[in-house]
């Protein structure tokens, strides 16, 4: 099988690849969201910790 034929998907390229593309985006967003939330939370807690140490 050659690459062109593979990408062509028997004429259904737009449908097949948009489905897989959307799946990739949704999965990636699911991984990135908790990573970003964790970073933000840790930063916020670290700030609070520093403030508490300055004026106990």
């Amino acid at each position: 099988m050659n690459l062109n034929e593979f990408l062509h998907m028997g004429g259904y390229a737009a449908y097949v690849w948009s489905s897989y593309g959307l799946a990739a985006v949704v999965l990636a967003a699911n991984v990135l969201a908790p990573m970003r939330q964790r970073r933000r939370l840790l930063r916020r807690l670290a700030q609070r910790e520093r403030r508490a140490r300055r004026n106990p």
Partner: peptide, 22 residues
């Protein structure tokens, strides 16, 4: 991953989280 963040948030006033943050 999500549960860890939720646990951190809920336990933010406990000693182990404060130690972890420092």
């Amino acid at each position: 991953m999500r549960a860890r963040v939720e646990v951190l948030e809920r336990e933010r006033n406990t000693r182990w989280v404060r130690e972890l943050v420092s």
